[in-house]
């Protein structure tokens, strides 16, 4: 593995680590000291150099190890990647979007040569070289969505648009915050969000759907979501819940700083040109509490968010049983000083 990428695990011995640079660029998701649901969309435009927003698809030090973890999840459970038959065109749209973006943004790692429909793709970090015919799935080792998302960090779903609704009809989902693609595939926008508490009544999904139905090609948007995960486990799937559930019960005051992770999802939404589908990458970033508190503003704010969150949300996000343990760890880092608005460190 090259020096650009960590050799680490997201299971078993959990050797996942963030470098000092990764901590500095971590996408801390709270712009203020409290949290409640909001649609909170903004244009997905390039951000500061070095930030996770610099490029369309962020490739970071965890890339190679994350792709190895995805391959293992898929070997264990192929149902984590599914595409209903009419979604192949959207898969090609996604493949094109990712290959063009990565070849443009990271030319030292990725190359794409196009000669009509004869494409030549080189992925140096994963040591992949592929010549194929664009729009001819028989020239790839698997479907286009699966092919490119085995080489791209983050979960992906593809939404078909019809009847003034969005239908989740394809996806690659191996780093999910406890939801099942196999169960939800084929559902409408409000159906697959049905289990989320409070937000329906607040009109969140009405507004979000209305907004997304009008999403334009070439004008992607982004938002954050977050939850809490014990140990840097990417695959917190409902399928494997009996395997990872017990880990929530074994944290102690001595281990909470190392084991408790803030899990941030950078969600982007892209209208696709041929299929008119919407691609929804859900990129997961993990940071341990002990790394998070090295940034004073984040430490203060994390304490206030966890302290003040409604129990219903803490339950839904799955950390109510460890809330007291988390607060005991975070409280000493909160000196009561005001924090500045926005995500950035002071």
């Amino acid at each position: 593995m090259s020096l650009d990428f960590n050799d680490e695990t997201f299971r078993g011995d959990f050797t996942y680590r963030n470098s000092a640079r990764a901590i500095k660029r971590f996408p801390f998701p709270f712009p203020e000291d409290s949290y409640m649901y909001s649609v909170n969309m903004e244009p997905h435009v390039p951000g500061p150099v070095g930030s996770v927003f610099e490029h369309m698809f962020d490739v970071d030090e965890h890339y190679v190890s994350e792709m190895r973890d995805r391959a293992q999840v898929l070997a264990d459970d192929p149902l984590r990647c599914q595409s209903l038959p009419h979604m192949e065109l959207a898969g090609w749209d996604l493949l094109e979007l990712i290959m063009e973006s990565k070849a443009r943004d990271y030319p030292h790692w990725f190359s794409l040569h196009r000669d009509g429909n004869q494409w030549h793709w080189i992925n140096r970090p994963l040591q992949i070289e592929q010549r194929f015919t664009f729009m001819d799935a028989s020239t790839l080792p698997c479907g286009p969505m699966e092919y490119i998302t085995r080489q791209t960090q983050g979960d992906f779903t593809l939404q078909d648009q019809r009847d003034d609704d969005l239908w989740i009809e394809a996806g690659m989902v191996t780093t999910q915050a406890d939801w099942s693609l196999d169960f939800d595939i084929g559902m409408s926008f409000k159906q697959w969000h049905a289990p989320v508490p409070l937000a329906h009544q607040a009109g969140i999904f009405d507004r979000a759907l209305k907004f997304l139905l009008k999403l334009q090609h070439g004008a992607p948007v982004r938002r954050f979501n977050w939850t809490m995960t014990v140990d840097p486990l990417l695959d917190t799937s409902p399928e494997n819940y009996p395997k990872w559930g017990p880990s929530k019960t074994t944290m102690t005051p001595e281990t909470v700083g190392r084991r408790q992770h803030l899990r941030v999802e950078l969600q982007t939404l892209h209208r696709l040109p041929r299929s008119n589908a919407i691609a929804f990458p859900i990129r997961c970033y993990l940071i341990s509490f002990q790394d998070l508190v090295t940034v004073p503003k984040w430490a203060r704010r994390m304490h206030r968010v966890v302290r003040d969150i409604p129990d219903e949300l803490a339950t839904y996000k799955g950390f109510i049983r460890n809330k007291a343990l988390m607060l005991d760890y975070l409280a000493p880092f909160d000196d009561g000083l005001p924090t500045s608005p926005g995500f950035a460190p002071e």
């Binding site: 099942s180 169960f183 939800d184 595939i185 084929g186 559902m187 159906q191 049905a194 289990p195 409902p238 819940y241 009996p242 559930g245 017990p246 929530k248 019960t249 049983r321």
Partner: peptide, 17 residues
């Protein structure tokens, strides 16, 4: 939570944790 495709409700392990 109900899937029309599977024609089924979802069952989740109650003592996983």
């Amino acid at each position: 939570h109900f899937s029309r495709r599977l024609a089924a409700f979802q069952g989740v392990c109650i003592d996983a944790e």
